[in-house]
Amino acid sequence: MSADGLADNRAARDRTLARVRSALGKKLPDAQAKANAEANVTIHRHGPRPRMPANLRERFIERARDMSSTVESIAAISDVPRAIAHYLDTLAPEIGGQPRAGVCWPEFATLDWSAAGLSIVSRPTLGNDRLGITGCFCAIAETGTIVITSGAATPTATAILPDTHVAIVRAERIVSGMEEAFALIRAEQGATPRALNLISGPSRTGDIEQTIVLGAHGPFRVHLLVVG
């Protein structure tokens, strides 16, 4: 650590923990409590869960719409460019001609965008792209949420800087609740990624007179393409 005051913080830490222990009526760090805590977190115990229907796909779509996402089902990933082109057509009257250009995650780089009349490049956004196309790690049926995990191939800002966010959701990746999403991350990624962004519909605010307005900072609209 460099020679600024941050290096001296150890004493503040020790005093704070000592005050916590004294408030709890303890004198010393409790090795047994620590061992118990470490064992406890590995159980990943769930709290009470609301009942979920057998058809998670339907529940996800219904809840995503409740959160003001728009949803369309398509048969295959290869249908994505045509579906997005059509979606942009339907938006045109609302937003005065959405440019048919944007950025996407690398996993969609090889789709035939030009055949659908779109100009999509695979790169992270720097802030002036109006359309961002992402996938998602998984999706949550309980709340209509998509889960984005950060990584080299999944630049976060593509989902939050452009005016319009289109996310591709593979139906087999729709899980019941947040608990299953966390379990899937542990199983497939091991360590927790830098960022887990659980996104449920477009950015919104109710800070002026509690009137809900979409597009507070992030996307004005989130369109989900459920594949399969």
Binding site: T143, T145, T192, R194, A195, N197, L198, I199
Partner: peptide
């Protein structure tokens, strides 16, 4: 039912 953005941030 859920807030629009729930971010879990871990390390740089």
């Amino acid at each position: 039912s859920i807030s629009n953005y729930v971010d879990v941030l871990t390390g740089p």
